[in-house]
Design a protein around this nucleic acid. Sequence first.
RNA 1: CGGGGUAUGGCGCAGUCUGGUAGCGCGUCUGCUUUGGGAGCAGAAGGUCAACGGUUCGAAUCCGUUUACCCCGACCA
Length: 569
Amino acid sequence: MRLSKLPIATLRETPAEAEIASHRLMLRSGMVRRLASGLFTWMPMGWRVARIVERVTREEMERIGAHEVLMPAVHPAELWRESGRWQDYGDLLLKMRDRGEREYCFGPTHEEVVTDIARRELKSYRQLPVSFFQVQTKFRDEIRPRFGVMRSREFIMKDSYSFHLNEESLRETYGRYREAYSRVFERLGLKFRVVQADSGEIGGSKSQEFHVLADSGEDLIAWCDGDDFAANLELAPALPPEGQRAAPGAAMSEAHTPGMRTIRQVAAHLDRPPEDCLKMLLVKAEGGGVVALVLCGQHEVNELKATGLPEVAKPLQLANAQEVAQAAACPPGFLGPVGLRVKTYVDHAAAHRANFVCGANRRDKHLVDVNWGRDLAEPETADLRNAVEGDRSPGGGGTLKIARGIEVGHIFQLGDKYSRAMNAVVLDENGAERHMQMGCYGLGVTRTVAAAIEQNHDERGIIWPEAMAPFSVVLVALNMARDENVRAAAEQLHESLRSQGVEVLFDDRDASPGVKLADADLIGIPHRVVVSARGLKQGTLEYKHRRSDTAEDLGADEAVEFLQARLAP
RNA sequence: CGGGGUAUGGCGCAGUCUGGUAGCGCGUCUGCUUUGGGAGCAGAAGGUCAACGGUUCGAAUCCGUUUACCCCGACCA
């Protein structure tokens, strides 16, 4: 492609709306343009990248025998009423009416449609297992679209659905998808992790997420290098500490802690480490009232774990002022478990502390040298907190690491949730009707493009992994408009590379060298060749990799072989 | 949906408090010069100041209504 023919300007200044690197760089490099909140046009350069992700994904889907289909983007309401999700999916579902006042939604996912297909087409266990996939535009009416195409309302997803006679077959196919997804992200050159995940609204039992590792990721994931444990932080168990709890020491006493409502203030004032200072949260209980949760000062409550307790209301909500006042005669900063008559759960780590500090349930007072079993009853323990770096791995192979990730894929074993709701059955070998087992598997195509940029960029621009780059080589011809030698050499190299099948972006614009070099860095093509009058005088071209700090000269006549050697897969 | 904010040429912004008929940088176009890290000079095009209504001799500016967008919270590929 000749840049002189691509009428898309790169932006020197960043539009004010862009908060994160990928959004900024995609706008500046002209990969996408915004139409409205959460709606983006994919411009030529960006679309090439999206299509690479699509292509690699398709190839891996076909490799495991999935059949590509294309289902409608618009779905009739009846189908979604049948599954119960016309209501359950909530406002994320974009609903609309046609001229006959019939109700439809724009599909945010396709379990209903594919299950309808399956119940019509699949009649016998002999047809199973089978899986279908599509690459298609989805619409989710997100409350707050943000981060450009990372969380847009309209986006492209590759979604697959598998059908099985039994759970064993489902598990086997699920495993194949996990491997296929891993191959997709490996081939794209992304650093990623597969982690255990919560199934959320889609339902079903087991699910795993694929996260591209990036510091700007919205999710936290935990894993252990010494075993195969890996989970979304919301699911990662925080194991009880090992060993015996220390013996009680000095007798419990009261300390004056005026106005100190945070763990940090209390710990500093009493000269105790934060882990010795237990904090207590009052949260709303199912059916009214409150439940108390006690954790070590440095730990964070885990919402999924907390709401898993029978008494705790979903979603997790802190008690309001009235509820706190009802439970204790002090402000929230001075709450503690001693003498409190509220259902109380204590995190394993907090239950392991001896001689700890906690609120006294009196304004401006804390208790010091408190001990379970001495100053108050032995606690009812539970896992309430987020795991932290260095915690013991549930897999037993060492300690946990924590990193940020961007969720680009999610695979589920759905079981019979949809096949039951929509009565999708086949006859088994005994001629009996059986609800099919289902799996579903999503991969965010457009989000993967943004995630790749989050993981691979520097202050100058994007650094595409080789496999995702919209072009392999950028050919920068300096002062081509006024130097016939440069023009001839550049045109010739462009033609040679093209004839060898190399995807080359030819910067033949009549622009200053600074502009061209800056744009080459911004767009992020891995291999750069500069043709200049200066070099040609010595019969050389200049080569530089986007990740390298230094350029090297190469003979003008060996450029094609040189590049081919570098581009070899 | 709750809270906060913004809306002025393609992009980034000033002007609004204190009303007087719109300006800067980047980009675009023309010409000359320059040419290895976002060039210089000269000239030019481009704005119903988000929309509607009101106050006023006069509104980007004051008042009211509406809309769009952004940021912070709960969701997801």
